[in-house]
Structure formats: structure tokens, C-alpha cells
Design a protein around this nucleic acid. Sequence first.
DNA 1: GTCTATAATTTGATAGAC
DNA 2: GTCTATCAAATTATAGAC
Lengths: 189, 189
Amino acid sequence: MKEQGAKERILQTASELFYQQGYLATGINQIIEEAGIAKASLYQHFPSKEALLTAYLLRTRLSRHEERMAFVQHLAPGKEKLMGLYEYRLQHMQTNNFKGCAFTRIAYELPGLNEDALTQVRAHTDMLKSFIAEQLQVIKNPFPAEELTEMTDMLLNLYEGAGLQGYIRKSAQPMEDARKIALKLLTTL
Amino acid sequence: MKEQGAKERILQTASELFYQQGYLATGINQIIEEAGIAKASLYQHFPSKEALLTAYLLRTRLSRHEERMAFVQHLAPGKEKLMGLYEYRLQHMQTNNFKGCAFTRIAYELPGLNEDALTQVRAHTDMLKSFIAEQLQVIKNPFPAEELTEMTDMLLNLYEGAGLQGYIRKSAQPMEDARKIALKLLTTL
DNA sequence: GTCTATAATTTGATAGAC
DNA sequence: GTCTATCAAATTATAGAC
């Protein structure tokens, strides 16, 4: 990890800790210790802890999006890619020991979220929403606007709700159930 | 507020602050200041900040449940009471300026949640789930077990997902949309 | 039971040498 | 650019007087 430059090492360490322990529960001291750099070096690259948070959110949002896209890449557009969304999340939950959604964590940790951070959190669900809507339009075209919105909301809420339940229960079951329900909903189209 | 006794005043103040600002962001100092008592008095009644958290969660869970029940009391069992669930949450969101779910906040603030707290969080969604399942069985009886589970999950996820979206967007729209979708789902039974 | 005073640690952030 | 040393403030919690 040493060969990656100080700034990169800081951001990677902070990202891991923010996600695993939470933003507030993670101190600057722990970050510099685990990154193996001095405190003043951190502040050379990031003016404040809050700036580190913004950088973390931006990076995480983009990389999650890329991972998701890579996961569904080989799947057929439409129903298969939509199922892939649930399957990707299932895999992510299990790989990360049910640590939950990075963006939901930040949003709930900081009720008074600054605008930059709030923008990143919203952009994350915007991406999910448009992904769902796009795939739905592949399945059925033309898709009446109102019905499309309804089905999109339904699938998004199902996904987010199951993510929340899975986090609280430390279980993949809610998301697996949600996947099955989503499949059933799609076959009625 | 003075006439309520020290312990009660502490718990009320802490509850308000934990919900509004979050548990981690709220210091003991702020609690005693706003409650108007001395620090040692707080520790007389609660052995630690964590004990205060547990008391907060228990009280909030019970009072939310009572409020919810009172809200749907005059509604007919079945479809009407189910719609009342969404309407209660809508009212709650607006009254509390979209501060989100108290239990989701705690669950996400503290990834390493102690068992007592985790139990409270789970008990909260257990209550929601059984409420939904009960009302569904009023609408349709007998309700095949598998279908009942599916419909319950769907309504719960819809509810939780919309709650999350509403929190992030500071908007009642997602929950209103969810309520309409739920209504449509119920009329197909 | 409630108070004041204080302890011991940790927090985010900076000054200044190299 | 990276370091050591340090800052002021805030953290949870306790001792001991009244």
C-alpha cells in the first residue's frame, strides 16, 4: 500500500473506516495511524475531516456504480439486468458482512448534512432509479408514463427496504425474498 | 418541565436530542445543560450514556407503537388500517421535518450495536410486520401462507423504502406514492 | 439526591522545523 | 511534502462536599 502515494493512502484508509465504523466514530488519529502518515500530512491533502468525507462519498458513488455495471454487463437488458441489480446487492451484502449502505449510513449519521454530501447521497439513488426505469422500458415499450413511475418506485422501494431489513437482521433473506417478488412483478408486464 | 423529576427530565431531553442530532453527535454536556441538571445527577440515574440510549430506544418504541395504534384506532380493520399506517408515517414525517426513522438512525450510527439496542431496533420492525400481516388476514381469509408472506414483505419494504427516500429528499412525495401503490396492490386481493 | 470540581482521554486542527 | 510537538476544546465519567 506504501507505493500509492500519501493522498491515495489516506483516502483509501478513511473510506474503509468511514464505511465500517461510521464517519463520526472514526477519528483523524485512527486514520493517520492506519494509513501510516503524520497528521500534518493529512491536512496537507485535505483541509478538513469534512473534505475527506466528501471525497469518500464521491469515490464510493462512482466505484459502486462501476461495480454494479460490471456485474450486470453480461446480462441481457431488461428483466435479467434488473434481477442482476438484486443479485449484485446480495453479493455485496455477504461480502461486506451486512454492513449496510454507505450512503444511508452517512445520511443518517449526519442529520444536518452539508450540501455537497447530500448531493452525493441523492445522486446515488438517482442512479439506481434511472437504471431501473431504463431496464423497465426495455421490457415494455412504450411504457405508459404513470405505470412506469409506479413500477420504478415499487422496485426501488423493494430494493431499499430489503437492504434496510437485511442490514438490521444481518441476513440475506429479505433481499432474496425481494428478488423473488420483483421477478414475479416483472413477469406480469 | 421542572415538575417532572430529574430522571424523567433527563430522559426526555436526551430522547429529543438523540433523535434530532443523533446519538454520537449529542454529548452528555448538552443533555445536562438543556435538562438543567448537574452531570453527577445524570450518572446517578443512568450508569452510562449507553444506558441512556437503551432507555431512549425502549421508550420510543413503545410510544411510537401507541401513537400508531391511536392513529388507526377509528379506522376499519383491513385495508383502511393499512392505509392508516402510511398516513401516520406521512404525518410523522411532516411533523418532524423529515428527520427520518429513529431506529434506522441508531442502527446506522452504530454499526457495532450492542445487543440490547439491536433487540429494540428489530422489535420495532417486527411490530410493523405483524401489524401488516394481521390486517392482510382481515382482508382475505384464509390467506395462503406463501402469498401472505410475500404481500407482507412487499408492503413493509414499500413502507421502509419510501421512508428512506423521503428522508433523503426531505419530501413526502415518496411516501405518498408508496401509499397509492399499496392501495392498488390491496384492491387486487 | 443534587451539586461543584476535576480527572483522564480524545477530538479536530496548526505551528514550525527539516 | 512530511515530520514532531502542541493546541484548545470537548469527550465520558468520578470524587467528594452538602
